[in-house]
């Protein structure tokens, strides 16, 4: 059992979301940085998609009411368990009464708290993720508030060294001077003017404060224009889609995005780079780079292979830990 000590309208319970409910119009949802959630779960010998807490509002404090193994991953936040400083991407077992504090990130924007066994919430439409827009999933379909108590699904401890253990290569975070995002051309790419396509690729776009789990609005000095007017029928859109409304400034659809839309689409961010974008801080420059579909498939397959290699490494390492 853990108790949330700091409320916010933005910290939510997330797993891998509801990719099979999109046909009902339900957002895919799930962790914005799925790799960070996966790393936390792997450190705890959980299924990679076990539900954890996505933290975007700091400081975040939680008290453990029972002995609990947990991991803090994702954004580089100064983390302390009572007075003990924890390294990045670290798992450790807390004693009853101890408090974990995560302070504002030095790099990145989202931290994940995962717990041994995963959070025990009733799945709704196949997932434990909070759908804030729909008001279901997670804890009563809402963000976590001060005083909320959450329990885990399985035995709450794992045999770990007293000082804990962690990853030697934490998940990459975007550098403060700019995030490079790789994209594939989308349906209306070729209808944008040559100057607009040039601008899209060469400009430094700035991430505006209108950046949440639904979408990230970008702002640039020059707007993107179509070479002819388009009136599109509404169509399915996926997280990562870069829409361009008539105002000409791009909006990138994130995990809680609407499942259908009607604005022209210039590009789609590849999945591994969408997590980098989710870790990008407001005001940071964002650069787009178009790659081929073959390259994108290779990148996605390499990332999947790396994750399964990491899972094996961590499982092997755990058997060799010295207690």
């Amino acid at each position: 059992m853990i108790e949330i000590l700091t409320g916010s309208s933005l910290n939510t319970i997330q797993d891998f979301g509801r990719p099979h409910a999109m046909a009902m119009g339900v957002a895919q949802g799930g962790a914005m940085d799925r790799l960070a959630l996966s790393h936390g779960n792997l450190l705890l010998d959980n299924p990679v998609d076990a539900a954890g807490i996505e933290i975007v509002f700091f400081p975040f404090r939680v008290r453990f009411h029972a002995e609990t193994s947990f991991a803090a991953t994702g954004a580089a936040c100064p983390a302390t368990l009572d007075d003990l400083k924890l390294p990045r991407d670290w798992a450790i077992t807390a004693r009853p009464g101890q408090t974990l504090t995560l302070r504002a990130p030095e790099q990145g924007a989202r931290a994940y708290l995962t717990l041994r066994g995963g959070l025990d919430m009733p799945p709704v439409l196949g997932a434990r993720s909070t759908d804030l827009k729909g008001g279901f999933g997670g804890l009563e379909g809402r963000a976590l508030q001060k005083g909320d108590r959450l329990s885990c699904l399985a035995a709450s401890t794992l045999r770990l060294p007293a000082a804990g253990y962690g990853l030697t290569r934490p998940c990459p975070l975007p550098p403060a001077d700019g995030t490079r995002i790789r994209v594939l051309p989308a349906a209306e790419h070729d209808v944008f003017t040559p100057e607009s396509l040039q601008t899209f690729h060469s400009a430094a776009w700035t991430l505006t404060p209108s950046a949440n789990r639904m979408g990230y609005r970008l702002e640039g000095q020059n707007v993107l224009k179509l070479s002819r007017p388009l009136s599109l029928f509404s169509h399915g859109i996926l997280p990562g889609t870069v829409q361009v409304p008539p105002a000409g400034q791009p909006i990138i659809q994130m995990m809680d995005a609407n499942t259908c839309g009607g604005y022209p689409k210039i590009a789609t961010v590849i999945a591994p780079d969408l997590r980098l974008l989710s870790q990008t801080v407001v005001g940071t420059p964002v650069h787009f780079e178009t790659i081929t579909r073959d390259d994108a498939v290779q990148i996605i397959r390499r990332e999947a292979a790396e994750l399964s290699r990491l899972a094996t490494e961590i499982a092997t390492l755990r058997t060799q830990l010295v207690f």
């Binding site: 594939l184 989308a186 349906a187 859109i237 996926l238 990562g240 889609t241 789609t268 579909r293 996605i300």
Partner: peptide, 9 residues
């Protein structure tokens, strides 16, 4: 059209 690597429209 491509809708990312894992999507087709």
């Amino acid at each position: 059209h491509m809708a990312g690597a894992g999507g087709l429209l």
